[in-house]
């Protein structure tokens, strides 16, 4: 599963690290002082590493929970995000992480208790609801058997019903959720692109059909689910493809029970985009015409009209109150 496991000396003896190491007795273990020695060094290639990434077990310092970027997510109070992990098990060609990090190794920050402390401090400061997004720098559930992320964080949010946890994922690792009672203030947000986009760009990811089935199971167990249609990447027949996808999804789920639905176009900081072009010069997606505005790169062919047309299609199935457009 991993080419190597790098372990910061400081966390080597922690119970969480020891439990993870027990799962992988035959993978080489390499000690390091700080994860940046492996993760942030110069002269490494994300594309090459993605073929066989290592796992880095580390401790995160400083501000572990940060205010969400402007326009991120739905509007239900102050919003924050936290990343217990960097990088993703999947290999989606459109992903901004390819340009954000030099390394494709996975970093798992194992000091969950420190994250919990900061989350609790923030919750207690709020006069009303607040939202906590997980899955910005990783897929929240994909590594669940190793990370036990939801096993730790769900009981935390269970204590604070006014605060919402959104778990962003494309993963089938939902057993951890279905094995326990649903929590009303936790939303499992599944990302989708059209079947055509998914086949082309989403490597190592379960099919849309399987993701829909996972959402059905979650709804059946009482979990709130959400749908994230992003990134929208222009393709010939796009509206027809999404019409079909919307039909499949909304005929499989209890639409009124869907917490929220969003659409977001393909966009990322221009600096990340440039980094990705260097490692994927042969990728069709990064050969398209782009426009750069305020330091953000987006595709010229996926303009506001395309998004509006998709919204029209979407509103054939969901109420406008359930919808938001990603900024």
């Amino acid at each position: 599963m991993f080419s190597a496991i790098y372990i910061e000396e400081e966390v080597r003896d922690s119970a969480r690290v020891q439990e993870i190491l027990t799962r992988f007795p035959s993978i080489p273990r390499i000690s390091c002082d700080r994860y940046g020695e492996v993760f942030n060094r110069n002269a490494q290639n994300f594309r090459l590493q993605k073929e066989a990434p290592g796992l880095i077990l580390a401790k995160k310092y400083g501000n572990l929970v940060l205010p969400s970027p402007e326009g991120y997510g739905f509007k239900e109070g102050r919003s924050y995000y936290f990343s217990h992990m960097l990088n993703c098990l999947y290999d989606c060609r459109y992903c901004f992480l390819q340009g954000m990090f030099r390394s494709a190794n996975y970093v798992l920050f194992v000091n969950y208790e420190d994250f919990a402390l900061q989350i609790e401090e923030l919750i207690e400061k709020q006069n009303g609801p607040s939202i906590y997004y997980s899955g910005y720098d990783c897929d929240s559930l994909a590594m669940e058997p190793v990370s036990k992320f939801s096993k730790f964080f769900l009981p935390l949010f269970e204590k604070y019903p006014e605060s919402t946890l959104e778990i962003r994922t494309k993963s089938m690792q939902i057993r951890c959720l279905n094995e326990r009672p649903a929590i009303p203030n936790c939303i499992v947000a599944m990302s989708f692109t059209s079947q055509e986009s998914s086949k082309k760009y989403e490597h190592k990811v379960a099919s849309n059909q399987k993701r829909i089935q996972a959402l059905q199971k979650l709804q059946d167990s009482g979990w709130k689910v959400a749908l994230r249609f992003e990134p929208i990447i222009f393709e010939y027949g796009l509206l027809g493809h999404y019409r079909k996808l919307f039909f499949e999804i909304f005929n499989s789920l209890e639409v009124n029970q869907i917490h929220s639905v969003s659409i977001g176009e393909f966009r990322m900081p221009a600096s990340f985009y440039k980094n990705i072009v260097k490692i994927y010069p042969d990728e069709e997606l990064y050969a398209r015409e782009i426009s750069i505005s305020d330091g953000v790169a987006s595709l010229k062919d996926t303009d506001a009209n395309v998004i509006q047309e998709l919204e029209k299609l979407l509103f054939e199935h969901v109420q406008p109150e359930q919808y938001y457009r990603c900024a």
């Binding site: 080419s3 790098y6 390091c32 002082d33 492996v38 090459l48 590493q49 066989a52």
Partner: peptide
């Protein structure tokens, strides 16, 4: 000084 050779092909 410390270096970490990759094990991707090993």
């Amino acid at each position: 000084e410390v270096y970490y050779p990759a094990l991707n092909l090993v």
